[in-house]
Computed example of a mutant assay.
Amino acid sequence: MKPLYVLLISFILLVAFNKYTEADKDHLFAGNISMSIMLLFTAMGHFKFKTSMAAMIPLFIPKKVEVVIFTGILEIFFAIGLGIENTRYYTGICLIIFLIAILPANIYAAKHQINYEDLHKPGPGLKYLWCRVPFQFFLITWVWYFSVRLY
């Protein structure tokens, strides 16, 4: 749950910093930038653990490593898009669709005990879904609240 910690710690730090500037009373900037930081953090994993993450993709999908790299690049674009006010709404919509689309890969990985960091070690299995599925919906809600709902 490293991405959750990155998201929440960066949000808390940005909100604390904004107390002194009063520039972001509704915390929209903090919410979007902290999501961007988390997306950049997770995008790094797409390049560092690309082979292990490719194993998370169901068998019927071809070119798994390329898909992992592509989704890492998408996460970088989402991070940039959330930081730009003019693109935030559409980026948020696309990010919500992306978060829904990748959930089956997480379910597949849990079902087959795939460890996305090390293929030679078993993953946590189905118990992982008890935190991953709610986390995915938390991320969707976060993006909706900070990026989409006001437009």
Score class of each variant (00 low, 15 high):
W142M: 04
Y90R: 04
Q136C: 13
T42C: 14
H46C: 06
F41P: 03
I96K: 01
L59Y: 12
A30G: 04
E66R: 13
F137H: 05
I73L: 15
S52T: 12
I57C: 06
A54L: 11
P62K: 13
Q113W: 08
A101R: 10
P122G: 00
L126P: 00
I76W: 05
I97A: 14
K63R: 14
P104Q: 11
S36A: 13
A30E: 05
F49T: 07
P58G: 12
Y128G: 08
F77Q: 02
P58Q: 12
F98D: 05
G125M: 10
S36D: 06
H27N: 12
Y90W: 14
G31N: 09
I84M: 06
V133P: 07
Y89D: 02
G92M: 00
I73S: 08
C94L: 15
I73D: 11
A79L: 05
T51K: 14
D118P: 03
Y116L: 07
F70N: 04
I61D: 07
F138H: 04
V65C: 05
N106P: 09
A23Q: 13
V68W: 00
H27W: 09
D24K: 09
V65R: 07
V143C: 02
G45Q: 11
I57G: 01
A79Q: 01
I102C: 06
L139T: 05
D26A: 13
A23E: 11
F70C: 09
A23Y: 10
T71D: 02
F138Q: 07
T91A: 01
V68S: 00
P122W: 07
G81H: 04
I140M: 12
F137R: 07
Q113V: 06
R88Y: 02
M38C: 15
L39H: 07
Q113Y: 10
M38E: 06
L99R: 02
